[in-house]
Design a protein around this nucleic acid. Structure first.
Lengths: 203, 203
DNA sequence: ACCAGTAATTGATCACCGTTCAATTAGCAT
DNA sequence: ATGCTAATTGAACGGTGATCAATTACTGGT
């Protein structure tokens, strides 16, 4: 047994981390971000509040890690796709993964955007890395459609698409753009616009 | 003097409403949504917490009204634009208004998206109406570029653009897509994509 | 087997929070 | 002057995030 053996023999640091994140995920799925509190999470895993603060820097850190897990799952969902599909098809498949994920876990998904850091603090580096990882998938997918574009242009278009997808999904989730259109249709249009513009550039 | 005269002769209901929203706006501008609390707003306007609950249903209602004010200002900024400009130009001018507004009042702007309603409750009707008003401006602007599109298509494209702009701005604001690109450039691309796709449809 | 050291765990404590509501008070009409 | 009504207060309730001294459970060394 390593030096990180659990004190109470109950749970190791890592197990505690997983337990807490599972509990937080459960709470968010049922009640949204407002349902989360350090005491609540602690209670649900059979510990007390102090233990949460032993594992996480603070409550924002806990949410960051939950969001990190969410991004990992989005990444995994996208990694399960055929990477050799036709560019346009692949782009639509990627979008479909996001939409399906958001539909299956709406409160988890919206937490990605609802959670803002307190004023002095920025998200940690690993958080940016995870976002970059998701963006990279999109960059790789659109690169073939923009053969004459340089790196910056591909990066920029990926951000436009990614932000657009998130904007559409999260606005729909918040009931802020109630309309006859579903998120899937709107994202479809977003991609159509991109693809047609890209095709035009090729001549 | 009407029947709504102030009791304490200090402030009428409407004045109280304005005072509270001004204070809330000030707090948000300086400290973001986290800085807001009923007691804090009350203190800043020289009243006590109960008075806030006499003017607003609850704290979510207060934020809704603040967001309503924010949307009114966005609307006003857009109304100040030349409505007869060339469609493409007008679209870019509209986008510029959003970007400038977000740059000038970043915390106010992000509150539009950070604030989510508690689970059982939806935003009030007037809130949806204000969103619809903003969308309508975009619809009117893009309609000329899609002469053969029906009402639903115009609606959908307006939502795509609107959500895209908000996605880009709010992601940038949250530091979630740190990159070499500025929001303005990305929104420019979003609009380019739309316009090129629209142009293609015309033949 | 014991003990010292270390890390995990607790729960009290602090200053807040949203929300309610009985009690008070201010201004009005009579 | 006297009610009536609406505005205003502030105490009360059950929470919150965060800190931290005290306790406990385990470790490795002897």
């Amino acid at each position: 047994m390593g030096p990180n053996m659990a004190r109470r023999s109950d749970h190791s640091r890592e197990e505690l981390y997983d337990l807490a994140l599972d509990a937080a995920g459960r709470i968010i799925s049922e009640e949204g971000l407002r349902g989360i509190s350090a005491r609540r999470v602690a209670r649900e895993i059979g510990y007390t509040v102090g233990t949460i603060y032993n594992v996480f820097k603070n409550s924002d850190d806990l949410i960051d890690h939950l969001n990190g897990q969410t991004m990992d799952r989005l990444q995994a969902a996208c990694d399960g796709l055929d990477p050799d599909a036709d560019a346009a098809l692949r782009l639509r498949q990627l979008a479909r993964q996001y939409i399906e994920f958001a539909a299956a876990h709406p409160r988890r998904y919206v937490t990605l955007f609802e959670h803002q850091h307190p004023m002095g603090s920025r998200p940690p580096d690993w958080y940016h890395d995870k976002v970059a990882g998701l963006l990279h998938i999109v960059e790789a997918a659109i690169a073939p459609t923009l053969p004459s574009a340089n790196r910056d242009e591909v990066e920029a278009q990926a951000r436009v698409l990614w932000a657009g997808v998130h904007g559409i999904i999260s606005l729909e989730g918040a009931g802020r753009v109630a309309g006859s259109q579903q998120a899937g249709d709107l994202v479809g249009l977003l991609i159509d616009n991109f693809l047609e513009a890209a095709a035009k550039k090729m001549g």
